[in-house]
Simulated scan of single mutants.
Amino acid sequence: MTIHKEGRLLLAVMLLVLAAINIGLYFYVGSTTVVKLIGIASAIIFLLVLQFFRNPLIKISVQPNQVIAPADGKVVVIEETTEEEYLKDRRIQISIFMSPVNVHVNRTPVKGVVEFFKYHAGKYLVAWHPKSSTENERTTMVLKTENGVSVLVRQIAGAVARRIKWYVKEGDKLEHGAEFGFIKFGSRVDVFLPVGTKVLVKEGDKTLGGRTVLAEL
């Protein structure tokens, strides 16, 4: 288990600020009940933020035709829909909602080349809102597998998550489960698969990024 690079500076600054506040209160006010409670609250807040930026070391072990979960969370949508931005055809959409307690590393669901990538500024509707996938801040990435299958992955910011990070560009070759991005403080990731794909999860299932098999192409 390590701390993700997106959280290291924030955690260091937060630790210094909280330590300064508590040390200052101790010297100027003394060891009162209120000061002790502030110290406990500070520790709890720091630990909550710390757990959000945890980055577990995982072993990717999947078959080439398998589609793995791009994030930890819960499957909230499995439906056939039309992907309007790039693929412009009928697709099976699988959406995973990430709560603030989930690991927020985003991983590639398939091995392939980044055929398309685009960032969209947008709104901050709650992640489960029907229009969040088309109106919220988001990124769209399309991976083309060795067999020529295009798989679209979309990072979507939510009401709390207001910063999407990505580490890829068009033309990059990515392995199964490679880290391609991070969303801070809870949001959603959508995967769009060809119609006819064998889906192996159902709505309500919990997922582990890079480990849970969503489907087979």
Rank of each mutant, 00 (worst) to 15 (best):
I44S: 07
S31N: 15
V151Q: 02
N55P: 04
K123R: 15
G7D: 06
T197N: 11
D72P: 06
V168T: 00
K5I: 13
V160M: 11
R107E: 09
I94G: 04
A12Y: 12
T139E: 02
G148V: 09
M98Y: 03
N106D: 14
G177W: 01
A69L: 03
N22H: 12
S61V: 15
R91E: 11
A178P: 07
I96D: 04
Q155N: 06
K123Y: 12
Q63P: 05
E80Y: 13
G171W: 10
V34F: 15
V189M: 13
T212P: 06
P64W: 01
L15R: 11
L18Q: 06
F97I: 01
Q63G: 08
L48H: 04
S99L: 00
N55M: 13
G177M: 06
L50E: 00
L193V: 09
Q93N: 10
P64V: 04
R163H: 00
L48S: 05
A161V: 06
F46G: 04
N65I: 09
T108F: 11
F116V: 14
A161P: 01
L87I: 01
M98R: 03
R91F: 11
G148D: 08
K74I: 10
A178M: 10
K111T: 04
P130R: 01
S132F: 04
K123E: 14
R162G: 01
Y124R: 07
G196P: 03
K173E: 10
V76R: 05
S95M: 02
L47I: 11
E137G: 05
R90C: 09
E83C: 07
V189P: 02
I45D: 04
R188Q: 00
A178E: 10
K59C: 10
P130I: 06
Y124K: 09
L37C: 08
L174S: 04
F117Y: 15
K206D: 15
T2S: 13
K165P: 03
R163V: 08
E84R: 15
N22F: 12
Y167F: 13
I44C: 03
E216N: 11
P194K: 01
Y119S: 11
D205H: 09
T207Q: 01
E85I: 12
L214P: 02
F182M: 11
E6S: 12
V62I: 01
K131C: 03
V195R: 02
G24D: 00
I40H: 00
V34I: 14
N22Q: 13
A43M: 15
E179N: 03
N65G: 13
V195A: 08
K5C: 00
P109F: 00
N55R: 13
I45Y: 08
Y124N: 03
F52Y: 11
I58W: 09
L18I: 10
N65K: 11
K206C: 08
A71F: 05
S31R: 11
A127L: 15
I45T: 06
R154Q: 02
P70S: 07
V34P: 05
K74A: 07
K88F: 09
E179V: 02
G112Y: 01
F117T: 05
Q93A: 10
I68L: 02
I3H: 03
P100Y: 09
L16S: 15
K202Y: 09
Y124H: 14
E146K: 14
G148F: 07
L50R: 05
V110H: 05
F182A: 08
S99C: 08
T81W: 00
Q51T: 15
T33Y: 12
A159P: 07
K5W: 12
A161D: 09
R54C: 09
